[in-house]
Simulated scan of single mutants.
Amino acid sequence: MDTRRRGFTLVELLVAISVLAIVAVLGWRGLDTIIRSRAALNEELEQTRGLQLAFAQMQADCGRIAMKEDIGGRSMLLAQPGRLTMVRMVFAENQPARAQVVSYRIADGVLMRRESVPTRNLRELDAAWIEALGPSTKAPAVVLHNNVSEMAIRTWAGGNWRPAGAEPVQKPGGGVEEPTGVEVSLRLRDRPASLVKIFLLGAA
């Protein structure tokens, strides 16, 4: 009786190696897909988080918007295509309230926020307002997001939404109907839909 143990043949080894190679390739492709999906999801979450932070800053500014009687009857908000400018009140401990011009604008896909030096001088406030509406400003810019393709703005006045740049709503007895709310839509590049937020003016 032959008691010698029979080993694997060359064909069996080749078959086993081929099976292992196929399993390894399938496993690598599945792992690669998971890693790519995770990276894309993390990037999307980071982009959304950046927009949420930008909206949080806008909400804080809208909540502290100045009243017309506080700034001598001047305009406290102007909505233009791709640009939002407002006057907000700044409150510091042991100091009187001061007015500050804040502007949001998009330039080359970058959403930036600028603010002027707080002041109680209306002439200085007028100069800061004019500078904020101009093509360039000395106020330092804070980058809120660098992948924004569009910022659409509407204001709520006279019981209707008004697009940016629309003529102000006239009151029946004379004067202008001031907006009480603002809607901001931000769209990222390569994204089909916009993220929309509505803010009350003077809600804080």
Rank of each mutant, 00 (worst) to 15 (best):
A139S: 13
S149H: 08
P140L: 10
T180G: 13
A152K: 11
V182M: 12
A99S: 12
V110Q: 12
A99K: 01
S185E: 12
P135V: 04
V169F: 00
H145P: 00
N94V: 11
S149G: 14
R123H: 13
P118R: 09
A92E: 14
R123C: 04
G181V: 02
A92F: 06
I106V: 15
A97L: 11
P140E: 04
A128R: 05
G165F: 03
H145D: 15
L125V: 02
E131W: 13
R154W: 11
T180H: 02
G165Y: 01
V110G: 08
A97I: 07
V182G: 07
S136G: 06
R123D: 14
P172Y: 11
E93P: 04
P163K: 04
W161Q: 00
R187Q: 14
R114T: 14
A107V: 12
S103G: 07
S185G: 02
V184R: 02
P118I: 04
G158V: 03
G134I: 05
S103I: 06
S103N: 11
P96N: 06
N94E: 14
R98V: 00
N146C: 01
W161A: 02
W161M: 01
E115P: 01
A107P: 00
P135A: 13
L144K: 09
I130R: 15
V142F: 12
N121R: 03
E124P: 00
R162D: 01
M112G: 07
G165L: 01
R105H: 14
S103P: 03
I130T: 11
D126S: 13
M112N: 11
G158M: 06
P172R: 15
S185R: 14
P96R: 13
V182L: 10
G174I: 01
V169Q: 01
Q100K: 12
E131Q: 15
A132F: 06
E115G: 15
A92V: 05
A166F: 04
P179N: 06
A97F: 03
D108M: 14
N121V: 07
E177C: 07
G134S: 11
D108L: 12
P172M: 14
A107D: 04
E93A: 15
T119P: 00
W156T: 01
V169W: 01
L144F: 06
N147M: 13
I106S: 04
V90R: 08
N94T: 11
W129M: 08
A166I: 02
R105P: 00
Q170Y: 05
M89L: 14
G159L: 12
A99H: 05
I153M: 05
V169L: 02
V182E: 04
V142A: 14
Q100C: 15
S149Y: 05
A107T: 10
A157C: 09
E150C: 10
S185V: 00
V176R: 05
P163R: 07
G175Q: 08
V117G: 00
W156L: 11
G173M: 11
V101I: 10
R123M: 09
L133P: 01
L122D: 01
V143F: 06
E183R: 12
D108S: 15
S116L: 07
R120C: 00
P96G: 09
V110E: 10
L122W: 00
T137R: 13
V117K: 12
L144W: 02
L186Q: 09
P118Y: 08
H145S: 15
K171H: 10
E124A: 08
A166H: 07
R113N: 02
A164N: 06
W156F: 15
I153S: 04
T119C: 04
N160P: 00
E124L: 11
I130M: 11
E150M: 15
E183S: 13
R114W: 09
